[in-house]
Amino acid sequence: MISEKDKVRAKKICIHEAGHLITSKLFGFKTNGISILINQRIGHSGEATIILPVANITNNNELIGYLEKRIQILYAGVIAEFTDLNKNFDDSSALIDWKNGGGMVDYAKIRELTHVLRNIKYPKTSEENKQQLELDKLDKVNFANSVQIVFENIREIHRIGKLLSDKVLQYDITYNLTEGELL
């Protein structure tokens, strides 16, 4: 049986994955549910299965739109995890999670995709200080857009996160919430 402490952790992870899932759906990406596995000693793994439409990217404007959506989807997980139903966002805990916690992988992808996005939008900028300003601007806009999406959908995100976390009863078992169960 899973401990109470790990049950609380599982719920946060499920909300995190639901944030990715809902944001993906709003952007028109196909999804295939979410899953979680809690291990008592080594941590957890969670996943929102998102089918990325990369074959449809045929020009720079479509690539820019795709990169912005992916960045916002990646941000949505931690934002959802640290936002309560009253839309209170614990930004200091979120920052810690992006730097040292479960959101590290998402944040590494965010940084990489933001660099690619900057290179496409501002290909002629060569001065390092100006590049950093452009990166900061893109990051700020995508973060703010993701916050808005999560806030507008926080009840549904928490509902889906709870549906999955209520299934988590034991360690070392992968629990899934299928597309059919999301309704």
Results as ranks from 00 to 15, higher is better:
Thr83Val: 07
Phe89Val: 03
Ala76Arg: 04
Leu169Met: 11
His16Ala: 04
Ala108Thr: 11
Lys109Met: 12
Gly33Trp: 03
Thr58Pro: 00
Lys137His: 13
Ile157Tyr: 04
Pro123Arg: 06
Glu128Pro: 06
Ile110Asp: 01
Asn86Asp: 08
Gln132Tyr: 12
Asp84Tyr: 04
Phe89Thr: 01
Asn142Gln: 07
Val105Pro: 06
Leu182Arg: 09
Glu156Ile: 11
Thr114Ser: 14
Gln131Asn: 05
Gly180Gln: 13
Gly33Gln: 06
Gly65Thr: 00
Arg159Gly: 01
Leu138Thr: 05
Lys12Tyr: 08
Ile154Asn: 04
Ile13His: 14
Ile71Thr: 10
Leu135Tyr: 15
Lys121Asp: 00
Leu113Tyr: 15
Glu128Met: 12
Met104Ser: 09
Lys140Gly: 01
Ile71Gly: 11
Glu17Asn: 13
Gly101Arg: 11
Gly33His: 12
Tyr66Val: 02
Met1Asp: 01
Glu181Arg: 05
Asp97Trp: 10
Tyr107Ile: 08
Ala18Cys: 08
Leu113His: 15
Ile51Arg: 07
Asn88Ser: 01
Val147Cys: 09
Arg155Leu: 10
Tyr66Met: 13
Asn60Lys: 13
Tyr75Gln: 07
Ser146Ile: 02
Lys137Gln: 13
Met104Asp: 04
Asn100Trp: 13
Phe27Leu: 06
Asn56Val: 00
Asp84Phe: 04
Thr58Asn: 14
Glu127Ile: 09
Glu128Arg: 12
Val54Cys: 08
Ala80Pro: 09
Ser165Cys: 06
Leu117Ala: 09
Gly28Ala: 05
Leu52Phe: 14
Asn142Thr: 02
Ile120Cys: 06
Ile57Val: 13
Met1Gly: 02
Phe82Gln: 02
Gly103Thr: 07
Ile71Leu: 14
Lys124Val: 00
Pro123Asn: 01
Thr114Glu: 12
Gln170His: 12
Ile50Tyr: 10
Leu133Lys: 14
Trp98Arg: 10
Asp6Pro: 10
Leu117Val: 04
Leu26Arg: 10
Thr49Asn: 09
Leu63Trp: 03
Val78Pro: 09
Gly33Phe: 07
Gly33Glu: 04
Arg118Gly: 08
Asp136Asn: 13
Ile22Met: 05
Phe27Thr: 00
Tyr175Met: 02
Val116Leu: 15
His115Tyr: 14
Val168Leu: 05
Val116Lys: 15
Leu63Arg: 09
Asn86Pro: 00
Leu37Met: 09
Ala76Asp: 01
Leu113Ile: 09
Lys140His: 05
Met1Leu: 07
Gln132Arg: 15
Asn142Met: 07
Ser146Cys: 07
His158Gly: 01
Gly180Ala: 10
Lys12Arg: 12
Asn32Ala: 03
Gly19Lys: 13
Ala18Ser: 14
Ile42Gln: 10
Lys11Leu: 10
Lys140Leu: 10
Tyr107Asn: 15
Cys14Leu: 09
Lys5Gly: 00
Gln72Lys: 14
Leu177Gly: 03
Lys87Cys: 04
Ile50Met: 05
Asp90Gln: 07
Leu135Ile: 11
Leu164Met: 09
Val150Glu: 02
Glu17Cys: 13
